[in-house]
Nucleic acid binder design. Structure first.
Lengths: 238, 238
DNA sequence: CGTACGGTTGATACATATCAATATGCGTGG
DNA sequence: CCACGCATATTGATATGTATCAACCGTACG
């Protein structure tokens, strides 16, 4: 069923494309549109692998529902999560012939995929689509560069604060910046957060409880976070 | 003088374009080619700013000689260097209207630049050029993602080892992987290395002397590093 | 009702940061 | 060519943030 899929993806897609003037064109010929129209929908169970590191990269994916983590492993099992993909996010589209990371379902999730060759063929005719693909890669690069600053130079508190604000903004993309009282539901475990932020579970947990004691956030349950004082969180960001 | 500039850039360019099949086309219609042909050459003194964070992004640059650092700053002065650009590397070409980082001369350096509008205009006609721009962005993304793993999950030793191997490979791109006995001249200070690796000067210095004591490297001078046991260094990478 | 898994909290260890002193290299001017 | 001064790098002593190891708690589920 391509039409409801397309609609879902379309709506959510507004958010990652946050780079100015290309937004307008996004809904006529966006890669997401193409994927959603011609793609195959698949569901994955929690922790299922969608593709592995070094595997041949044949498809491009769009998340329809749930969340996906993109990760790299070190020989001894240390893991770095590069990013989390939520509904509307695209992943797996590199120019290289093999994936340089694995993709796994964080939660039960639905994903559409198309053959790269199909998308590439279209892109060679369609300058707008080609541009959109480029813009998408550039947006991903920008996100990754911001994350470099987080991992290289921020303290545990700052990392967690940045993460929470980011998640809040992605969840409420339409409503602009995160406001006091907003509640975010985190689809991922503490371990995932830790591996994303370059910390350990324990440090993430302690930092969250510390933010709660400081009244910056509230934790009605371990997966739900209420931003009580988003100003305080934002002050921890630079 | 566009012709010698073009030649230099062309030769060095082989290296960052390490993603397979697009290599071949690189020398006919690469972005570097366009920049070098139509660009303006400028020299910068050590530590001079080429452009600043949040500044309007009007140009795209190619390094002809010397080295450039791309960095982000935190409010209190903490700095993260995203990458070093050596001869042949392209920088400053984002899709966003403003630069999201600053660029500074690490050493005395020469740079060519063209207006983004010129390159973009050509790219809309020329699918190959458009593809090359995309591939370039994707390559940068890949590099950045690898660096995420370094900053998020590697120890100081591993970070320094990774850095040295990377620099050795970039310097001797043609000769393939770094071999024992190769000498690398680092164009950047210890502070720059520290800010690239998410460490302090002292830790970088101590780690280098430790690698020297271990006979993994030799340090004929602080800026020159000989890879004595590149196998040992490589073993520290995963 | 018990078991299992994810999360929190506590005690301690350790890697890296910080603060401080010394050394080395390098350009400048005598 | 040497002496001086500054910037950069190294080395040392100590502090600290986060990791590690370990116990405990709570909630979901059979």
């Amino acid at each position: 069923m391509p039409s409801p899929a397309a609609a879902t993806a379309q709506k959510a897609f507004a958010q990652p494309m946050s780079h100015g003037r290309w937004n307008d064109e996004a809904d006529t010929r966006s890669p997401v549109d193409v994927v959603a129209r011609h793609g195959v929908v698949t569901s994955y169970a929690r922790n299922a692998e969608i593709f592995g590191e070094d595997q041949a990269a044949e498809h491009i994916y769009v998340v329809l529902s749930g969340a996906v983590r993109i990760c790299k492993l070190l020989g001894d099992g240390r893991r770095q999560i590069e990013t989390f993909c939520l509904a509307g996010d695209v992943f797996g589209w590199e120019t290289a012939p093999r994936h340089r990371f694995s993709a796994e379902a964080v939660s039960e999730c639905k994903v559409v995929r198309v053959k790269r060759s199909i998308l590439f063929a279209r892109a060679s005719d369609d300058a707008e689509l080609a541009h959109a693909l480029w813009a998408l890669t550039a947006a991903e690069l920008s996100r990754t560069q911001n994350h470099l600053l987080v991992l290289g130079r921020k303290t545990a508190q700052e990392r967690v604060a940045t993460f929470l604000l980011d998640m809040a903004q992605r969840a409420n993309a339409s409503k602009g910046a995160a406001v006091n009282g907003v509640e975010v539901t985190l689809p991922m475990s503490r371990q995932d957060i830790a591996d994303f932020l370059g910390l350990t579970i324990e440090t993430v947990s302690r930092t969250l409880t510390h933010l709660e004691e400081t009244l910056a956030i509230a934790l009605p349950s371990s997966r739900r976070v209420v931003l009580r004082d988003s100003g305080a969180l934002r002050r921890m960001n630079s």
